[in-house]
């Protein structure tokens, strides 16, 4: 059953005493896809990844990677996985090359050539022998990625890999991940950079307060109803007025000076606002992007 998925998580839960870091997360990652794991700060992304990597013991739930169970006591299958979780994990007192050489001790197939190759891949070819503690955030991130790629893994699990990278770096990473996916590698990537994820992911899951609120292809998620954005003098009152119109299935969200309304017809909205003495100064439809879907789901204004 598991063979069809590279990574499968069933009803993961992690409680730290009263803190519910992860409530209920199930994931099914298929071979060769780039899967985005989205959610706001504190949603439980890093905790979930920690459980997948056998670093954190789940309170409940199970994980299989390439069909083999992963727990803190049984993690050998992770040899086929390249990872980067949260803040950089590296030997700060050593150079980038030394870091790669040491990790290479775990991979008999990795030779000096491969080390130079991954350094080039992440754009660190020309760093000399500086210890990595002197690296900038983006450079550490690049080395983290090189460490993840070193063993030529079949599955990459990356926690916010482009954190602190410049736009050129992000673009390079995007190309790199696409390239890896085209070679049949699977990529699981967490982020809150939504436009980024929209550009590279085949499928995404959105998590909020430790629970999955949506999972599907980017196309599917974007195909949800379009939104009408209205600007008025008083967004709060506008939102309240809009709420009077519908039957409760609509989705109304205050977004700065704007109110974003889903599930209502434009004419209805304008008419009702004018009647309520609140003439809109701007009304326009907005194209759905992942960011909107994310905001709606992540902020939890959507029900059902």
């Amino acid at each position: 059953m598991s063979a069809e998925f590279v990574l499968e998580a069933q009803h993961l839960r992690k409680y730290y005493h009263s803190v519910h870091a992860v409530e209920d997360i199930s994931l099914h990652i298929k071979p060769g896809e780039i899967f985005g794991f989205l959610g706001p700060n504190g949603a439980g992304k890093t905790t979930t990844i920690g459980m997948i990597l056998g670093l954190i013991k789940p309170t409940a739930g199970s994980i299989t990677v390439f069909g083999d169970t992963v727990t803190p006591f049984h993690n050998t299958v992770l040899r086929r996985v390249g990872t980067m979780m949260g803040a950089p994990s590296m030997l700060m007192g050593y150079s980038a090359r030394q870091n790669l050489r040491m990790l290479a001790r775990l991979y008999p197939q990795v030779n000096a050539e491969r080390i130079e190759y991954v350094l080039k891949l992440v754009g660190l070819k020309d760093v000399n022998n500086r210890p990595v503690k002197q690296f900038s955030t983006g450079m550490k991130q690049r080395l983290g990625l090189a460490l993840a790629l070193l063993g030529d893994p079949d599955l990459l699990i990356l926690d916010e890999p482009t954190n602190g990278m410049d736009p050129v770096g992000m673009h390079e990473i995007r190309l790199l991940l696409r390239d890896l996916a085209s070679q049949g590698k699977t990529v699981f990537i967490s982020s809150h950079l939504l436009h980024e994820m929209q550009l590279i992911c085949d499928r995404v899951a959105i998590v909020r307060q430790g629970t999955l609120v949506a999972e599907g292809s980017v196309v599917e998620l974007l195909a949800r109803e379009n939104t009408t954005r209205v600007k008025t003098a008083d967004p709060n009152r506008a939102a309240a007025l809009c709420k009077e119109i519908g039957n409760g299935s609509e989705n109304i969200r205050i977004n700065g000076v704007y109110v974003d309304i889903q599930g209502l017809v434009v004419e209805q909205i304008v008419e009702h606002l004018v009647q309520g003495g609140l003439t809109p100064t701007e009304v326009f439809p907005i194209q759905n992007n992942l960011e909107n879907v994310f905001l709606q789901l992540a902020q939890g204004t959507t029900k059902g």
Binding site: L53, N75, L78, M85, P88, S89
Partner: peptide, 17 residues
Amino acid sequence: REYSWRTFHLWLSRGVS
């Protein structure tokens, strides 16, 4: 240092038991 540099993460997440 393995804790402060988070290198235990590095080895354990690579399937070292």
